[in-house]
């Protein structure tokens, strides 16, 4: 049996003011799309940069494709593909040149035309990098991560700052990577992205992994698989009094109340009755399945986007 794509034990990294990575253990199997989900500052990027060899760790061990940085650094570099959080290229380089150039650094390389097709950049192949849109630049960065036909690909927030359409087309590329049998490790702070793309996830907060599993198992492990939402026009009122009357926890988000429940069927009639009695000026009622957002909220008491 081949070594796992990635195995990390006790990884730790402290910066002068903050412990960015605080004892992280991870194991990623070959062929898997693995997500690191967490809010900004959770330590996702630092973890990734340590794995990629860009930053040194204070403690812990890393094995990549069964190799270690100390022993086989050059071999690791030639077998992994990396997309950095921001790929800063020379302004006046074209995608075709960038792929040719970066390809020339590797012993094994994929054809430039093939990569351009893969990320749908044929039309912009000879345009200067500065003239590309954010989505196109990200797709180029993705193609560059594949230039050496890597077994393991690291993507750091591949869709941050992109519009929904650009995100979808990037997701397609990630799915194609998986289809080609590559292992993908990505970071994101979008739960929908994690749910849509990842086979398995690690949720990170304050430098620690607080939960690991498939998106479905993480959600079903929650005792409260459903959430009832009352939406208001404008800001939601203070729910404390209403929560007491209902005998149930009510959380206030910007313009809505969230009431987590294992059993929405019996809650709903009680809820509507109580709301009418208390003259709560809500607009709509929604019942939805719990999401990774709720998992995060439940584990940390904070929202992902805070």
């Amino acid at each position: 049996m081949p070594a796992p794509a990635l195995r990390i034990r006790g990884l730790r990294k402290a910066f002068p003011k903050v412990v960015a990575v605080d004892g992280v253990d991870l194991e990623v199997a070959r062929g898997e799309v693995f997500g690191l989900l967490g809010p900004n500052g959770a330590g996702k990027t630092t973890t990734l940069e340590i794995i990629e060899g860009l930053t040194s760790a204070d403690a812990g061990s890393i094995e990549i494709l069964g190799l270690t940085w100390e022993q086989q650094g050059q071999e690791i570099r030639s077998r992994i593909g990396v997309q950095l959080q921001s790929t800063s290229l020379f302004n006046k380089i074209t995608p075709r040149e960038a792929l040719d150039l970066y390809g020339s650094y590797y012993p094994k390389r994929r054809g430039t035309q093939e990569l351009l097709d893969l990320v749908q950049l044929e039309e912009k192949a000879d345009a200067y990098h500065v003239t590309l849109s954010g989505g196109q630049q990200q797709r180029l960065a993705l193609a560059m991560a594949l230039v050496n036909d890597p077994e393991l690909v690291f993507l750091d927030e591949p869709t941050t700052g992109l519009d929904p359409q650009a995100r979808r087309s990037l997701w397609d590329v990630v799915r194609r990577m998986k289809g080609e049998g590559r292992t993908v490790v990505l970071t994101t702070h979008y739960m929908d992205e994690a749910e849509a793309l990842c086979d398995r996830l690690a949720i990170m907060d304050h430098g620690k992994v607080i939960a690991t599993g498939t998106p479905a198992s993480l959600i079903s492990e929650l005792a409260i698989p459903s959430v009832v939402e009352l939406t208001f026009e404008g800001a939601a009122p203070e729910p404390a009094a209403f929560a007491a009357r209902l005998g149930q926890a009510v959380e206030r988000r910007a313009d809505l109340w969230e009431i987590p429940t294992p059993d929405p069927k019996t809650l709903l009639p009680r809820l509507l009755e109580a709301a009418e009695a208390a003259v709560v000026p809500f607009q709509q009622v929604h019942v939805r399945r719990a999401t990774l957002e709720d998992v995060f909220l439940h584990r940390t008491g904070r929202s992902l986007r805070e």
């Binding site: 060899g53 860009l54 570099r77 990396v82 790929t87 800063s88 650094y105 012993p107």
Partner: peptide, 13 residues
């Protein structure tokens, strides 16, 4: 400073 070399650091160059 602008990070133009970072991408090179992860290649075997």
């Amino acid at each position: 400073e602008k990070g133009k070399f970072r991408r090179l650091a992860v290649t075997p160059l």
